[in-house]
Computed example of a mutant assay.
Amino acid sequence: MARTARVIVIGCGSFGAALAASLAAAGHEVTAVDMREDAFDQLGDDFDGETVTGDGSSALVLEECGVKRATHVVAATGHDATNLLIAELASEIYGVRHVLPLVDDDAFVEILEDLGTEPICPHRICEKEFYRLTGLRLEGGDEQ
């Protein structure tokens, strides 16, 4: 039997809520965090994970969520700098091995990659998927 992950998803916008709901449906232990309690409405009625209302960039809130036992932390707030801070706290202070911040700004993406953290960058993912779907080649002739 596959080991169940303990995932903290911070930010219940469209991406964070969909991810948290999907992970919980797959049988993983999920804690969804958002500063707005009404954000949890996006999780759906069958979400069986935990919800925590609070600031996910706060060490106290992270500890309340069980960050010391987490296998994964996904920082999916609407703010790149906040996601970067959460990623740093989770990986450097709490030692979470799999930290995935959602980032749009290419400068932050490069900083995270230099630190050894793999960011989730929607426009890069969409660009790669575009080239995959169309069969067009990227500059330099390399296909993705």
Rank of each mutant, 00 (worst) to 15 (best):
E37G: 14
L84I: 14
I93G: 00
G54F: 06
G54N: 03
I111G: 08
Y94G: 06
C65K: 05
D46P: 08
K68V: 13
L136K: 10
T82Q: 11
Q42V: 11
G27S: 02
H28K: 00
A107T: 11
A70V: 11
A21K: 08
L60A: 12
D34P: 03
L115H: 07
T53D: 03
I93D: 05
E139W: 00
A75H: 01
A90D: 10
G135D: 06
V109G: 02
F108A: 15
N83T: 05
D55C: 04
A25V: 00
V73K: 10
E37S: 13
C65R: 02
L85M: 14
I93T: 09
T51M: 11
L115P: 05
I120N: 08
L60R: 04
E50G: 08
R132Q: 08
D55A: 09
G78L: 03
C121H: 03
A87R: 10
S91V: 02
L62I: 09
H72W: 01
G95L: 00
T77L: 07
G66Q: 04
A39H: 10
V67M: 05
G44V: 08
H28L: 00
E92G: 00
T77W: 04
L133V: 02
L138S: 12
L23E: 01
H79C: 03
G56E: 10
D104T: 09
D45Q: 10
I111L: 15
L100E: 05
D55Y: 06
